[in-house]
Design a protein around this nucleic acid. Structure first.
Lengths: 251, 251
DNA sequence: TAAAGTTTTCGTAAGTAAACGTAAGCAAAA
DNA sequence: TTTTGCTTACGTTTACTTACGAAAACTTTA
């Protein structure tokens, strides 16, 4: 048996079983433990598996999203600045929808001492606004979607039916001339309902998302009223957005 | 068993049950307590769980602990026993509604490792069940009512419209021959809807609530199917409940 | 309520057996 | 012959165990 052939089989065995011992692999493939170890070393270098004393395991997929680590959040400073600017366009007494996402979470924090009615779509935002003295806090219900602890599905969507708010603050994965897009179908539906329910739609997207088209397009640009981004976004594209009728604010 | 394999199992056990003791993990995995502790230390570093004296718990999504301090909760032991009995009548695969309240919260904790669809009506219960591997978790939306972080109001009520579940577990403030009652009008409405939505209504009430009539009566006894209480409840009254057609379980 | 005593859990250290890496040696292919 | 891919041999490292003093949590007593 050729080296690569054996290594391929080892990889298959480890991935299929989740874990394999050196002794077991040695027995099954008819080579010594030393050989297996060198194979595992090579496979680990390729990132195919993870070595352990005694054998190897399949790369971990478990990873329970630990309450999304704010501090390590990508583009955190940009998001904070965007949130600050967004907070300025919220007026006291308004009814607003706060979508799930890290940028909108930063916004929630800045709204705690305001007088507002806020519909939130994530457990994190709920957490952030509980106990705020002048906020009438409403949770959009529905199936809990774990990645961002947001509410999705038909129940969430019909919750918004017939509701009307002044502003909706949306987080998205991409904004380009074709519109705004997100990377999963689950959240697409509820975001569309938010857009329908709002008098004014404000999209919060840091510059890494500008010019990007993600999996599902949820609305064309003409359904959006304001885009808030940071100074890292390409100026020409922002100009094109403006010509398409979008108000673009740069934090 | 390889190190990472064992740690993966520990993570699964802790996430499924919400919490695990060092002793129990040691017993189940066949390694010493010292080894378990070092595993927990490693898993905590990865943010997968949180250590505490005696074992580890699943990471809490929310930063606030239940307002009603569990350990000092009035009649805690009775409530725990009631929750235990309630958990026994839940069958895998069912759709259930979990009302807000401390007793139902204890019940939520006992359902973490079951396979269920659960509609919850409080942020605490949501927190308790997030990350449970086999639970489809649905939040009833609506205005947040701070005392118990429960969802109330017309939006919460219409959320339940048209929904149908196998069982609803209700917490109340009083149960007497006239029916079940609670001490505020806000929660009365949503509880009535829960009763309407459920095939079987199970009321959880420790003995301090038996024979008590509170502010708003939400349903007559004939709308209730099962009452679970503790042995401190007066036997004659329970007998009268039974004669009124109620199934009474004493924990 | 506070203090004292008891129990449980924790972290550290020393000991041990299994697994490791390295090196030397051997056989087949280039 | 040299190179490649494997073996066995052996000193080193590692993960785990048991043991024990320290710290924390719970109970009892004043």
């Amino acid at each position: 048996m050729l080296v690569d052939e054996r290594r391929h089989r080892i990889a298959q065995l480890v991935l299929a079983h989740g874990a394999m011992t050196v002794a077991e692999l040695s027995r099954r493939l008819g080579v010594s433990a030393v050989t297996i170890r060198s194979d595992l070393e090579a496979l680990e270098k390729q990132g195919i598996l993870k070595r352990n004393r005694g054998g190897a395991v399949a790369p971990q997929v478990l990873r329970f999203a630990p309450a999304f680590q704010e501090k390590t959040s990508l583009h955190r400073q940009e998001k904070e600045r965007i949130a600050e600017l967004a907070a300025q366009i919220v007026e006291d007494g308004e009814w607003i929808i706060l979508d799930a996402g890290s940028t909108t979470l930063f916004l929630a924090r800045r709204l705690r001492d305001r007088r507002l009615t806020v519909l939130v779509n994530s457990v994190y935002a709920l957490n952030e606004l509980v106990g705020a003295p002048n906020i009438e806090l409403i949770a959009i219900g529905g199936s809990l979607y774990e990645p961002g602890l947001s509410f999705v599905g038909p129940l969430a969507e019909s919750f918004l039916e017939g509701l009307h708010v002044d502003k909706a603050f949306l987080g998205v994965n991409g904004v380009d001339l074709r519109g705004i897009s997100v990377n999963n179908a689950q959240e697409a539906g509820i975001k569309r309902r938010m857009i329908n329910a709002a008098e004014e739609v404000i999209v919060l997207a840091d510059s890494s998302k500008i010019g990007v088209s993600s999996f599902v397009t949820i609305a064309p640009l003409k359904r959006i009223h304001v885009l808030i981004t940071d100074s890292g976004a390409p100026g020409e594209l922002l100009q094109e957005f403006r010509e398409a009728g979008l108000e673009v604010l740069v934090a």
